[in-house]
């Protein structure tokens, strides 16, 4: 009998700690599968990939990805990956970061990683909220969205409108490939995986900085059921954060 499906080798046996309906688990799986496939296709040597986990709900990603891993300080994953990549230029690196990690405390690090054209992949999980600390307002929180620190809804006059990271980083000359995806249905999950794999492929070719933004749910802190959360993402996030390729120097 031939094996038609098995657990991806790039994930450990450790059980995810994510809440029911959270997209972090799906996104982990897509990253791991992409790497695994590149290994199976003979494009990437096993053991030649390393990752950097953030501070946020995915802080324990180092326990889940079955490769050498770092756990970085809040927002500093791109700097950590920069140092590591410079020391091992032939190794494939990725950072996995939430929206507060990347779009708030770590904006300098991500902007300058893109600016230098660092050769690693960033998986940017945008759930419009601080998941881990219990649902505070993020730079990505939508106008009017209620959080524990915007109990009356985000007020644009008071604290601005949400940042569109994918668009912003596309304007930086050093970024190579940037796409925004979502995991709200099967078609989009397949698209997300394609994007992630393409980003890793570009790294194998030694191309510049790649970022895949994945719109994600946080049913727990949004106060919605997993299904309602997915609908909320479709009705509110996707219109403000349009999906698609923002920049692809390889396709130009």
């Amino acid at each position: 009998m031939s094996v038609v499906f098995e657990r991806t080798k790039l994930l450990t046996d450790k059980q995810f700690h994510y809440c029911p309906g959270c997209n972090h688990g799906i996104i982990h799986r897509l990253v791991a599968e992409s790497i695994d496939e590149l290994v199976q296709e003979g494009k990437l040597e096993a053991g030649n990939v390393m990752g950097v986990a953030p501070v946020g709900c995915s802080v324990f990603a180092y326990d889940y990805f079955n490769c050498d891993m770092y756990e970085a300080a809040h927002g500093r994953a791109p700097a950590v990956a920069t140092g590591a990549k410079r020391a091992r230029p032939n190794t494939i690196f990725f950072t996995y970061q939430g929206d507060c990690d990347l779009a708030s405390i770590g904006t300098a690090e991500i902007v300058h990683a893109a600016h230098r054209g660092e050769k690693f992949v960033t998986i940017f999980v945008n759930n419009a909220i601080y998941g881990m600390t219990g649902g505070q307002m993020a730079p990505t929180t939508l106008v009017g969205q209620k959080t524990t620190t915007s109990p009356y809804g985000r007020d644009e006059a008071w604290c601005g409108a949400p940042i569109r990271i994918a668009e912003m980083l596309s304007t930086i000359p050093g970024s190579y490939y940037i796409e925004r995806c979502a995991c709200n249905n099967n078609a989009n999950i397949i698209k997300t995986k394609k994007a992630i794999k393409k980003a890793f492929q570009y790294q194998l070719e030694g191309k510049g900085f790649c970022l895949i933004e994945v719109l994600s749910t946080c049913p727990t802190n949004w106060g919605l059921s997993p299904v309602e959360a997915m609908t909320w993402l479709e009705e509110n996030m996707i219109p403000y954060y349009p999906l698609g390729v923002k920049k692809d120097k390889g396709a130009e």
Binding site: A84, E109, R116
Partner: peptide, 21 residues
């Protein structure tokens, strides 16, 4: 490798990354 970081915050985290190898 010499790399000018965007800040001292980034520089020490690059140290963290490279020293980890």
């Amino acid at each position: 490798c010499f790399l000018q970081a965007e800040s001292e915050v980034a520089a020490i985290n690059m140290v963290y990354g490279a020293a980890g190898t």
